[in-house]
């Protein structure tokens, strides 16, 4: 293969394990985006998800301090559980949900920054935690992440129909006798599992991006719920692959970029493209509707 052909070859870079593992993880996260991400979108839990990603941050730092790279995941799980309990306690005290999330977000995030700065760099830099260590995840990390994502997806798929009802009409679902609080807890746990699975390897920033952006892009492209789930999965997988591919191409050109951030940026570019396509499509649909109604009138 010529150097030029190798440069634009979309598959070869992923045949080496250190590229194949991140790609596998991003595809799994795309499936999470098409299920858990859709639930987040429908229930408007974006801010809560943001709160959870920040809450996981000090857990990553503590995990790294105590156990190095192997401590990241247990640390993240511990922090997610503490954050979920604190969130529930603050909400039960009658605080609005956004207030509770804001308090958890800022307090946990500050704690994480203090821990990182206090460790004098021993636990890794801030950008490691923000953007993760996508290219250095091990098979063990990947296995644990896939297991967490699998449980999260299963929770959402099993409760999909009551979740849809509770998201569409929470008061109606309560009146119909559905266990709305239990559904809310199940949904939050699923989000937390995906956030943990993503944070330890792709960083807290990308964790938010992979849960939220694919569904937001899908909603811009399609009005159907089932289609949105499929498009979100395809979007997450395609932009994940494109982002990693861009990392490789930039490395060949001698530019060393943060892989997690590059993937996040690729998703955002894809989202903007989806918004533009959705807007153009909406405009042309409106024009054809006007043209057909004008034709019918004449």
């Amino acid at each position: 293969m010529t150097p030029t052909a190798a440069l634009i070859d979309p598959f070869t870079p992923f045949s080496v394990p250190f590229m194949g593992r991140p790609l596998l993880l991003l595809v799994a996260l795309a499936i999470a985006a098409g299920t858990v991400g859709v639930l987040v979108n429908l229930r408007r839990l974006e801010f809560s998800t943001d709160g959870l990603t920040h809450a996981v941050f000090p857990g990553l730092v503590v995990g790294a301090t105590l156990g190095g790279a192997a401590g990241l995941m247990p640390g993240a799980i511990g922090a997610a559980v503490v954050a979920a309990v604190v969130l529930a306690l603050i909400s039960r005290r009658g605080q609005p949900r956004d207030t509770a999330v804001a308090i958890v977000l800022t307090s946990f995030f500050s704690l994480g920054v203090v821990l990182v700065s206090g460790s004098g760099g021993a636990t890794g830099s801030l950008s490691d935690f923000f953007f993760g260590r996508l290219l250095t995840i091990t098979w063990a990390d990947l296995g644990l992440s896939l297991a967490l994502i699998g449980v999260a997806v299963l929770l959402v798929v099993l409760t999909a129909r009551p979740q849809l009802y509770a998201a569409f009409d929470p008061a109606g679902a309560r009146r119909a006798g559905l266990p709305v609080l239990v559904l809310e807890v199940v949904g939050t746990v699923a989000v937390a599992l995906v956030v943990v699975a993503a944070s330890a390897s792709v960083g807290t920033l990308l964790a938010l991006a992979v849960v939220i952006v694919p569904t937001a892009a899908a909603r811009a492209l399609t009005r159907s719920l089932a289609a949105a789930a499929v498009v979100a999965i395809a979007f997450g997988a395609a932009t994940g692959w494109l982002g990693l591919w861009a990392v490789v191409q930039l490395a060949v050109l001698g530019v060393d970029v943060a892989p997690g951030a590059t993937v996040a940026l690729t998703m955002i570019v894809g989202y903007l493209a989806a918004l533009a396509i959705g807007h153009l499509r909406g405009t042309s649909t409106r024009h054809s509707a006007i043209a057909s109604s004008a034709g019918a009138a004449s």
């Binding site: 009551p162 006798g177 559905l178 009005r223 719920l225």
Partner: peptide
């Protein structure tokens, strides 16, 4: 993003559970 049919199908949820 739900159709009328999907909304009406929600009415079966309390009886169907999971």
């Amino acid at each position: 993003p739900v159709t009328l049919e999907q909304v009406v199908a929600m009415g079966r949820t309390p009886r169907l559970g999971l």
